[in-house]
Simulated assay, not measured.
Amino acid sequence: MEFYGGFGVPYPTAPFEQNYRCYSASFIDKPHLENGDKVIMPPSALDRLASLRIDYPMLFEVHNPQATRTSHCGVLEFVAEEGMIYMPYWMMQNMLLQEGDIVRLKSATLPKGTYVKLQPHTKDFLDISNPKAVLETTLRNFSCLTVGDNIMVAYNNRKYYIDIIEAKPAQAISIIETDCEVDFAPPLDYKEPEPVRPAPAPPAASSEAAQEPPEPEEPKFNAFTGTGRRLDGKPVKTPVSPVSTPVSAGASSSTRKSVGNGASGSSAPASSSAPQRPAGKLVFGGGSNGAAKVPPLKKEEPKPEPPKEDSPKFQAFTGKKYSLRG
């Protein structure tokens, strides 16, 4: 307790602290109360504050003992009924207060703010032409800001709610007659755009050729690969093997068969040196000495054409002469 210089009269220094029943601004004809953070207190509070040494502007700590919620506010007027205070409805929502609940007010001294970071609830607030100017105009009605509060900004017949997520130099700051830097965090409903993935580049032509399977080879033509049949319709005892390669004219005589002289159907006796040939194969040009060799064809040179004789020229009066007398 302090004394006025030498007179022994005490100077009260105890802080102001009082309990009140709170009600929203709808109970009083002051709609502009919703646009700030100031409350309306009874006249007895003014008398009590005047007798105490209170720093100006008057700031108060608001505490809800039932929900252990704490915030800060200023005072607008002292015209409320005794034992009652009127608060903005958005502040009652922050404090989890109902109409007529008990709230404790305590005088407080807050440092001047130098930085505050805000986060809108919806990205519609960023669609305003100049959101910082709107926010600056709205905050003129505020006395202080507390981290964790959710303030309301009214603009163009709409209400925008903004969270206080950071403040410097303290968790609760005064914004009266101070230069405070304001920063914005992304809105709560903001979603990062998905990155656009580039289309995969087409592989090189060489890699495509390496990945493609090789084309199947076309079947080659093989002559005389069918099955053999007799002209008389009887079954063939020895199957005819397919001919994969043409038979050369100079084949060995041991692999050829002689052809019998055909009226009696008996085959000619084979040479003693030539082995027996299997039945079912025909060799054209047979004989005891083997197949006749075909001499290689000689390419005939074109004969020179004889020079054409010039046809006799017509000569007049060159025929025989005849007499009329016979």
Results as ranks from 00 to 15, higher is better:
P131C: 05
T137V: 06
N141C: 09
L139E: 09
R140C: 04
I128A: 04
G148N: 07
E136A: 15
S129N: 08
L126I: 05
C144S: 15
L135G: 01
R140F: 10
L126S: 08
L145G: 01
K132L: 13
D124W: 06
M152C: 11
N150L: 10
V147R: 13
K132F: 09
A154H: 12
A154D: 07
L139F: 15
D149T: 11
E136S: 14
G148E: 07
L139W: 13
G148K: 02
G148I: 10
C144T: 12
V147I: 15
L145S: 01
N150F: 02
K132G: 10
V147K: 12
S143P: 00
A133W: 04
L139S: 10
S129F: 06
L145K: 04
S129V: 10
S143Q: 13
D127R: 14
I151W: 00
V147W: 04
A154I: 10
M152V: 12
C144R: 03
L135P: 02
K132P: 00
V153C: 14
V147C: 09
F125I: 04
E136M: 11
F125Q: 05
D124G: 03
F142Q: 06
T137L: 13
S143E: 13
L145Q: 05
T138C: 11
F125A: 06
A133V: 14
L145T: 02
R140S: 08
L126G: 06
N150M: 09
L135S: 04
N141V: 00
L135D: 00
T146M: 05
G148C: 05
C144N: 12
T138N: 09
N141E: 12
L135T: 15
L139Y: 13
K132Q: 13
V147N: 06
T138R: 09
N130T: 08
F142N: 04
L135N: 04
V147G: 00
N150Q: 13
T138V: 13
T138K: 08
I151Q: 02
M152S: 14
S143C: 09
F125K: 02
D149P: 03
P131N: 02
C144L: 08
T138E: 05
F125R: 07
G148L: 06
E136Q: 12
K132Y: 06
Y155E: 11
L135M: 15
T137K: 09
V147M: 11
F142V: 03
C144D: 08
P131K: 07
S143K: 13
T137Q: 11
L126V: 01
I151E: 02
T137S: 13
Y155C: 06
T146Q: 10
P131F: 02
A154G: 07
E136W: 04
D124L: 06
P131W: 03
S129K: 10
Y155G: 01
L126K: 03
V134T: 13
N141R: 11
F125C: 06
D149M: 03
S129A: 13
R140Q: 12
A154R: 15
A154E: 14
A133P: 01
Y155K: 14
F142D: 03
E136Y: 02
T146V: 05
P131H: 05
G148Y: 08
